[in-house]
């Protein structure tokens, strides 16, 4: 088994396993602890406030979108490209088909290429903002830079691989390593907001909601 096969096979399984398993464990731990220590969540449970809270932030209909339109637009573009590009990339679809004979809709290669650039561009915007804006710099830790790099690395290497800049094999190996690395770190870092965003929005939405106060 060469390095490519290792990354394409066992390590891919491992990283999907750690990613999904890690998220399930996080959620389970939250539920277990909250049953004992966060009883107001269950006492004031409200599907209405739960959904309203999530919906108002998953589409930008909230006070922050009005107050900070630029960060909101860049943030939404960043997240959309981050999620949509890898899931609907033609080349990734081919891999799924080769392994499982399953396929779904995919983006045109040109659109995917632009979306990759948008993701990288938005990431650079956040990098510069983090270094320049005093109120962002003051709360920045080394982990913030590392995680931004880990998030952008699959996109940069993916772009290089598609255009076959540098040595294709090496770039592709790096692309796979970074992609799998990103999946693996999600459950253990602030990137866990991938899932915990929904949990936090739900509990805060209900906490505000039980006082008839919207949290958006």
């Amino acid at each position: 088994m060469n390095l490519y096969e290792l990354l394409r096979g066992p390590l891919l399984w491992l990283s999907f396993g750690v990613f999904l398993g890690g998220m399930v464990v996080r959620l389970a731990l939250f539920v277990a602890t909250s049953r004992k220590k966060d009883k107001p969540i269950y006492r004031f449970w409200s599907w209405k406030w739960l959904w309203l809270s999530i919906v108002h932030w998953i589409v930008p209909v909230n006070v922050t979108a009005k107050k900070n339109p630029i960060v909101t637009i860049v943030g939404f573009l960043f997240h959309i490209c981050l999620l949509v590009t890898p899931l609907f990339l033609l080349a990734h679809g081919v891999l799924w088909y080769e392994s499982w004979e399953i396929s779904w809709w995919s983006l045109s290669e040109k659109v995917a290429d632009y979306m990759t650039l948008v993701a990288i561009g938005c990431g650079l915007f956040f990098l510069v903002r983090r270094m320049v804006a005093p109120h962002v710099r003051v709360i920045t830790t080394a982990a913030d830079y590392v995680l931004l790099a880990v998030t952008l690395a699959p996109f940069v290497t993916g772009y290089l691989a598609y255009h076959q800049y540098f040595d294709y094999y090496t770039v592709m190996i790096l692309h796979m390593i970074f992609g799998e690395l990103m999946l693996v770190v999600i459950p253990f870092t602030k990137l866990s907001h991938f899932l915990m965003f929904f949990v936090s929005r739900a509990v805060t939405g209900m906490e505000f909601g039980r006082r008839d106060a919207p949290s958006w």
Binding site: F30, T33, S34, D38, H135, V136, K190, S192, S200
Partner: peptide
């Protein structure tokens, strides 16, 4: 350290939108 406090302390993305 409740489940919510732990989640909030760990998940802050350090985006700075709370400043002003």
């Amino acid at each position: 350290m409740s489940a919510r406090l732990k989640m909030w302390l760990e998940m802050c993305a350090h985006c700075g939108l709370c400043a002003d």
